[in-house]
Design a binder for these strands. Structure first.
Length: 193
DNA sequence: ATATGGATGCTCT
DNA sequence: GAGCATCCATATG
């Protein structure tokens, strides 16, 4: 425990929990360049967030929260900083970080990270040696990091999943979101340039 | 380099 | 029973 915090402190400082209470588009942009790190049985896995998408509480038909709270999306209505994981296409898991306050229903989907820590373990988890395709998709990064539905409802920085700020302030651009069929024109996808 | 279709399981109508 | 916030293998230019 003390060791883990020591090694995390050497990488950067934990993102303050109040940050997740800000509005969702801001959180989605803020998360770019931050380090997403998972303590997997004592091994640190993770990398730098390079792509996010905002899913809003209001007027966003593509958001899981659009039709209200259900058993599946309940974590999305928890307080900002909660992790919302769901199964996608019956095959993969996708990971979101809830934004804003309790009962709002907004979150940021982590779409891609640049692998930095525990690369050999992530290669094993993904069954590939190719760094380019290790974590470059929402289903891929959860597989690389070992994130599953059991991580649903965990709290960032109060579990084995951490967000760190090492001072990186990347340039980014906004584009349309990917892989959805409703509200497809909203510029709510953010990518490091 | 881009396009396609299959795998897969769970939620909601 | 439909429809997915995906990925990969395969097929073609």
């Amino acid at each position: 425990m003390a060791n883990k915090n020591l090694s995390l402190n050497a990488i950067g400082k934990l993102v303050e929990s109040e940050k997740f209470l800000e509005n969702t588009e801001y959180v989605a942009q803020f998360l770019l360049g931050k380090l997403l790190i998972v303590d997997s049985n004592g091994c640190l896995l993770g990398g730098r967030i390079s792509e996010t998408e905002a899913y809003l509480a209001k007027d966003d038909e593509a958001s899981h929260s659009f039709r209200g709270k259900t058993q599946r999306n309940a974590a999305m209505f928890a307080n900002g900083g909660t992790i919302y994981v769901y199964r996608s296409y019956g095959v993969h898991y996708c990971m979101n970080i809830v934004s804003e306050s309790e009962n709002i229903g907004a979150a940021v989907l982590i779409r891609s990270i640049i692998p930095l820590l525990g690369v050999e373990i992530m290669k094993f988890n993904r069954k590939t040696e190719n760094l380019k395709i290790l974590c470059n998709g929402p289903g891929k990064l959860t597989q690389a990091l070992g994130i599953t539905i059991y991580d649903n409802y965990k709290i960032i920085n109060e579990s084995n999943i951490f967000l760190l700020d090492d001072g990186c302030k990347p340039d980014f651009m906004a584009t349309k979101r990917i892989g959805i069929s409703k509200s497809i024109d909203l510029p709510l996808r953010f990518v490091i340039i």
